[in-house]
Every structure is written in C-alpha cells, then in structure tokens.
Write a protein that binds this DNA or RNA. Structure first.
Length: 222
DNA sequence: TAGGCCATCTGGTCCT
DNA sequence: AGGACCAGATGGCCTA
C-alpha cells in the first residue's frame, strides 16, 4: 500500500475523498474517465495457467473463473518471488514433491479467497452510487471501500433526519406558525424545521443526481 | 517513464 | 493438521 492510500485509509476527510474524485474524474454521473477497451480482465490467467496452457500474456476473457485453481504447474511463480529451496529443474524427491503439492494447494486456496473477496467488492460496487458503465473505469478497491463507508454514513444521516421529521409531524400536526422552541424536536434554535439545511435535504437530493456530492457534503463524522 | 492498481506467491500466525 | 487470514514482495498492465 502506498503513501496516498494510507492517507486515504487514515481519514475519511473531504480532502481524501476529493482526491478520489479527482483520480476517477467526475462524469455526468460520478466517476468517469473513459477507460476504453483495455480494461483488464477480472481474473487473468495465472502464470501457472499460462504455463500450462501456453497462452502466455493473454488474459482470460470475460473475467470468468479460470480453471487453474487446482492445478498450478510447477515453477509457476511468474508474478511473485520463488521460495528459496524450490530449485526449478532440480530433482524432486518425494518429500519435496509433497511440499510442492501442499504449497500449490495453499496457493490455490489463497487465490480462491482473493477471488471471493473481489466478488464481494464487486457486489459492493453494484450497490453504491457511481457510474456503472463498461466504458467507465471500475472503482479501485480503496475507492470502493471509502465510498461505501460514506454512503452508509449518509444513509444513516438521512434516516435520522427522517425519524426526526416523523417525530416532529406526530407532535405538531396542527401547528402553522413557527414552532415554539419548547416543541422544537432537536433542542436547537435553528432547527425550526427539520428539513432546513438537513442532510436529507442536501445529500439525498444531490445524491439523486450527482453521487460526487457524497464526498463534499455527506461525510461528516458522526 | 513513473506511479497506481492489481493478481499472485509466500511465509507467518491464529483458529478449529 | 488443515484452513483462514494477513502482510510483504514481485512483476504485469495501464495511464498521465
């Protein structure tokens, strides 16, 4: 994780979120630099799969599950470092074969775990407001998490405002003049009417059109 | 070309 | 013992 990511994680400040919006741009509906057809496939073939299939350098189309999870080839550490006692081409004793087999099994399990994690992140992307389009670059993992957090905060805020409004309506249905301070549901002189300047009025309304407002207006810390 | 993002491998740790 | 989780390392791809 790089320094900027750490900063993003450390705080959910406006600056951090604005930084995200800058990174991902702001199209008419949120994030939006066109990404073009070069978008990387979800789960490109692992080096092992390349090794086995001979399709070096070709990504798996459609982001579908590749089938190498359970059959990593030997000497297949293309992207990552190789363990020290794992000489390629050296004679494989029965023990080393077993160790290698175990290692491959662990690798496959870890790969599946990360794929599940990515699937969950995709699910999260699907329900948070940003431009969902093939021509728009997918939110990064960090951006997804930060945006989701703010979305949750905003929804909670809106819910709270709604509760206050309902409470107010239940109490003061017949009141037509400005509400006496004693009846003001929030104990705030300025909160004469619950919607005035409320998160519900600002965030929800703006959210309907421009999710980027999440960043600017709706990320107050509780 | 540098930086960002990502997938993968790997070894360590914790839990069941 | 085996699986889940985690963090570090590495290399590939893409974009500004």
């Amino acid at each position: 994780m790089n320094a900027s990511d750490e900063n993003l994680l450390k705080s959910i400040s406006n600056d951090a979120l604005l930084d995200l919006t800058q990174r991902y741009g702001q199209s008419a509906f949120g994030f939006g630099p066109v990404h073009g057809a070069g978008s990387p496939a979800r789960y490109p073939l692992t080096p092992a799969a390349d090794f086995l299939s001979g399709q070096t350098g070709k990504s798996n189309e459609s982001g579908g599950e590749h089938t190498s999870d359970d059959e990593d080839g030997f000497d297949s550490l293309g992207g990552a470092r190789r363990s020290g006692d794992d000489k390629p081409g050296g004679p494989l004793t029965k023990k080393s074969k077993e160790q290698r087999s175990l290692r491959l099994s662990i690798n496959a399990r870890e790969r599946r775990r990360m794929h599940d994690l990515n699937d969950a992140l995709d699910g999260l992307r699907a329900v948070i407001p940003y431009a969902h389009s093939p021509s728009v670059r997918k939110l990064s993992k960090i951006a997804t998490l930060l945006l989701a957090k703010n979305y949750i905060l905003m929804q909670a805020q809106a819910l709270e405002e709604m509760r206050r409004l309902v409470s107010y309506l239940n109490q003061g249905q017949t009141i037509t003049s400005p509400i006496p301070t004693a009846l003001a549901p929030f104990g705030q002189a300025t909160a004469v009417y619950p919607f005035t300047g409320s998160a519900l009025a600002t965030c929800a309304e703006k959210y309907a059109g421009t999710p980027s407002s999440l960043f600017k207006h709706c990320n107050d810390k509780p």
